[in-house]
Design a protein around this nucleic acid. Structure first.
Length: 116
DNA sequence: AAAATGACGGTGT
DNA sequence: TACACCGCCATTT
């Protein structure tokens, strides 16, 4: 897969994050098939060509903290997330509650065991 | 062509 | 919990 396709795929994934939920850079990296390229994902969002089309504000760091946001900075980013109903704990997103659960394709008939 | 950079993430203290 | 380090990899210098 070429870099340009990789980038396009990231934007495609971001556009699928529902309002009120967030994904992490690493999560997108894994979903795109590039588990070790979280930083690159961040770079792609930084150079996001079309902010309105791709809700890059719904992408946060692995610990829930907010990193950059070109159109106004993390402050604006937080406000956008709050207005969508994302749950915060202080300065960080409560991933436990607001993390985007990607639909597991093959586990529809699967009892996802919590723990054992 | 080689080195530096960054909207990351995991580990160690 | 917070901060410092180090590995990662497409892009830029």
């Amino acid at each position: 897969m070429s870099s340009s396709e990789f980038r396009h795929l990231i934007y495609q994934l971001v556009r699928q994050i529902p309002a009120g939920q967030v994904a992490t850079y690493g999560q997108l990296a894994v979903l795109s098939g590039h588990p070790h390229s979280a930083r690159v994902v961040g770079y792609y969002l930084k150079t996001n060509p079309d902010i309105p089309a791709t809700p890059c504000h719904r992408v946060v760091a692995a610990d829930g903290s907010l990193t950059g946001y070109v159109a106004g900075g993390v402050d604006v980013k937080k406000q956008l997330l709050l207005s969508e109903g994302v749950v915060f704990q202080g300065n960080k997103v409560n991933l436990k509650i607001s993390r985007w659960q990607t639909p597991p394709k093959s586990s529809i008939f699967n009892h996802a065991p919590e723990k054992s």
